[in-house]
Amino acid sequence: MMADEIKQAHYWGLVAFFNRGKNSDSNGTLKVEESAIGGFSEFADLSGESTPNYLTFLETETVSEVRPDGKEEQEDSDDLYQANGSPLFARVPKFSRREQFVKQVVRDHPRLALAFVNRIWAILMGRGIVHPFDEMDSMHRPSHPELLEWLAEDTRQNHYDLKRLVRGIVRSQAYQQTSVRRAGLEDPASFAWYLERPLTGEQLARSVMVALRGSADSDVVGAFRQQFPEVLPETYVSTIKDALFLSNGSILQKAIEESNHPDHLIPKHLEMESRDEQIRSLFSRLFCREPDATEMEVVATYLDARKERSVEALQQVVWSMITSAEFRFNH
């Protein structure tokens, strides 16, 4: 939201929905408890005029609530809380501001369905109909407003049926476009080709392990996640630090070197007697395709030049494949 679309009352309203929470560790377990009283204040605008902090959220009606008069002290008592609470959980006020907030959002907030479908669309399609998907405001207009509205309406009417929405999108022609961008296509917001997207840090770490060892178990997930923290980036940005991490970092190198069990990728391929078979199999395992003639020749030349240290040579070829764009992107 842009600042001029958010009023002071929205800011203080949002504060009020949450300002009765407090940490408690009664019975030895940490929990967030909500008080049934307090949290009333006023805010002043630039002219000095003050307004109560009503329970106000964007684009919905203010939640009504009994406010104490003037300096009247409110007294906390068990009557104000739901009776059937468990000692394991924090007690819940009969009138819970936080619950009111949730209702404001999930009970047909005008933006809920729009935000919901836009986010799912972004996850599946690589960018939102409103892009970035989490900035749905006057600055960021939908590329296809009718489509967004239509999907939102359908989702609303079908009680936010996620499966229905996902099914609808993945069965569309737009989703099934080739990832090869045809000449003349420039604007990713046209969804005229399948937008390639980087694997997340975790996907990359696990994919590397599947390639090297045939199992997604990986002790390098943490390091990769830290290096590649983005999950749904607005645009893919490749930094030289990422390249350095993969080129000179010990994490990937160690993972490659330690994948030395007879069942693993590199030992298995070392045993293959035919250079042809070896390279074809590597491409099949790492790129899921056949190499073309030039690729065959280039990789064979690389390996042949290093016959005396075939383990290192094969490790280097595998490195160059798993750090290449074809492995890095979902396409």
Binding site: S179, E196, S238, I240, F329
Partner: peptide, 17 residues
């Protein structure tokens, strides 16, 4: 082959290593 800007960005950063 893909005419991929993202791949171009990736390759550019490796080229500077």
């Amino acid at each position: 082959d893909q005419r991929s800007d993202a791949a171009g960005a990736l390759n550019a950063s490796f080229q500077r290593v």
